[in-house]
Amino acid sequence: MKTDIRNIDDIKIFVDEFYHKIQLDDLLGPIFNNTITDWPTHLDKMYKFWNAALFGVPGFKGNPFARHAPLPINKVHFEQWIKLFHETINKNFEGDIANDCKYRAELMASMFQSRLELMKGNPNKVIV
């Protein structure tokens, strides 16, 4: 029986599995694998991000949008990212926090996608 996401150990389960899927994905893998040179550090940052997002635990520092803005990504990439994220959460967890996690991922993808569209073709836009 699946449980809800309860703590950092559960976060590590879904982050590790999700990014493993990303690395192997035909669409997203080349982008992530060419951008991320230190996967353990990236994964640790993602553990902290989701721990802060889901449980309010301090520790995450960074600007996720600024990191994604220069990447060659568009709506198709975000759709695939969300698909893999939902698959990972649904395979491992169920409950209110798992649903909140998927909702937050959708909001983040939507916000990133909207901001990237607004920036397109305008070199005067600030991404930070």
Rank of each mutant, 00 (worst) to 15 (best):
L43T: 05
N92L: 11
Q80W: 02
I97N: 10
F18Y: 13
I11D: 03
F55T: 02
E106H: 06
W81Q: 11
A98P: 00
Y19L: 10
E94W: 02
L28M: 11
I11N: 03
I31A: 11
L116P: 04
N34M: 09
G59D: 00
E17G: 09
S110Y: 10
D38N: 15
K2F: 07
A105I: 01
K120M: 07
A105V: 01
K120H: 13
M1T: 07
F49S: 00
M46N: 12
N99C: 01
K48W: 00
F55S: 02
I5L: 10
R115F: 12
G121P: 04
V126F: 13
F49P: 00
L28D: 11
I13A: 11
A53C: 05
I11R: 05
Q113G: 03
N90R: 06
P30G: 05
K91W: 02
T88V: 07
R104M: 13
L84R: 11
I31S: 09
W39D: 10
K45G: 08
E106K: 04
K75P: 00
N51L: 01
F93Y: 14
W39R: 04
F65E: 06
G59Y: 00
I97F: 06
L84D: 08
F18D: 09
G59I: 01
W39Y: 12
V126S: 12
W50M: 00
F65V: 04
A69G: 03
L24S: 11
I5C: 06
W50A: 01
L54I: 03
L107M: 08
Q80E: 15
A53E: 11
W39G: 04
K48R: 13
V76S: 05
N7Q: 05
I8R: 10
F65A: 12
I11C: 04
P40V: 07
T41A: 15
L24Q: 12
K2R: 15
D100N: 13
N90H: 13
A98S: 15
P72A: 13
P30A: 04
S110M: 11
L118C: 01
L84A: 05
A53M: 12
N124V: 01
A109H: 01
F60G: 03
A53V: 12
V128S: 12
S110I: 05
F60Y: 15
N34T: 12
T37L: 04
A66Q: 06
E117H: 05
L27M: 10
V57E: 14
F32M: 07
L54D: 01
D100Y: 09
F49R: 04
C101Y: 03
A66L: 04
E87I: 03
F65C: 03
I127M: 13
F49H: 08
M119N: 14
I97L: 14
P58C: 00
W39F: 06
E106S: 09
G56Y: 02
N7W: 08
V126N: 14
M1K: 05
L54G: 00
N99V: 00
T35G: 12
M108V: 10
I82E: 12
W50Q: 00
E17R: 15
V126H: 08
Q80S: 03
